[in-house]
Design a binder for these strands. Structure first.
Lengths: 124, 124
DNA sequence: CAGGATCCAGCCTGATACTG
DNA sequence: CAGTATCAGGCTGGATCCTG
């Protein structure tokens, strides 16, 4: 590891250098499943475990649990467990989580609309 | 794999289901290093290999090569090699890549400004 | 319904060496 | 300078089975 220039001058100094808090959050948010889980919640809060599994198509139970726990620890997602039988648990966005999805959803939307073009490769 | 509801009704139908083009692009763009490489280029185009390695702090040569190749195949990054000795290669964003970073950079910027708060965890 | 525990394959990384 | 090739090792993620 070397002393290095931050990724961008528009970001705070020391942003996105290896091992710094910024990078850790980036890795959480940009992980394989977090964007899909966050976007699902942004679209339809609150959601239950089973519904989240359906929306984040292809996710395993392990990864859903891991992703949700991390997002909950990060204060981006709130978990509400109602003490009934059978269990009833609801997941929703915190206000911080909502701020995040306000930036994330437009990005995903752009990707959705341009995916075909992108996979077609460079113009020539 | 099951027939499932798309992640969000605001996206085109069939968006972000497992194995669809949208998901593939998502995985490219949200991979571990692509966001940092794209943001670096958005901040200072064009950039050379060595400078990219410095900005995407912690990236290995293998991962830089892999990330750049994939972004180039996707038509998001352009590679310009000038036939001189020693070699001089410049990387820059395509117009599509610039569209992408227009959405990506605000997201990274938000993360940079909120990282400390996020890692502090939920309010209580 | 909502997870926890476990095992295994594959990817990423790091180090090193080599090329045009 | 700008990469490519190779190999060992750790960690991530996926599949499966089990539980309150």
């Amino acid at each position: 590891m070397t002393v290095s220039t931050p990724v961008s001058a528009v970001f705070p100094d020391q942003a996105f250098t290896a091992g710094c808090p910024t990078r850790e959050v980036l890795d959480h948010v940009m992980s394989r499943w977090a964007p899909l889980v966050l976007a699902s919640l942004a679209d339809a809060e609150p959601l239950r475990w089973t519904e989240l599994r359906r929306r984040a198509d292809g996710i395993s139970e392990k990864m859903l649990a891991q992703t949700l726990k991390r997002l909950e620890r990060d204060g981006l997602v709130r978990r509400d467990a109602k003490p009934v039988v059978p269990p009833h648990v609801e997941y929703s966005l915190t206000s911080t989580g909502r701020e995040l999805t306000d930036h994330l959803v437009p990005l995903l939307s752009w990707i959705a609309h341009n995916a075909e073009t992108i996979l077609a490769g460079p113009p020539a």
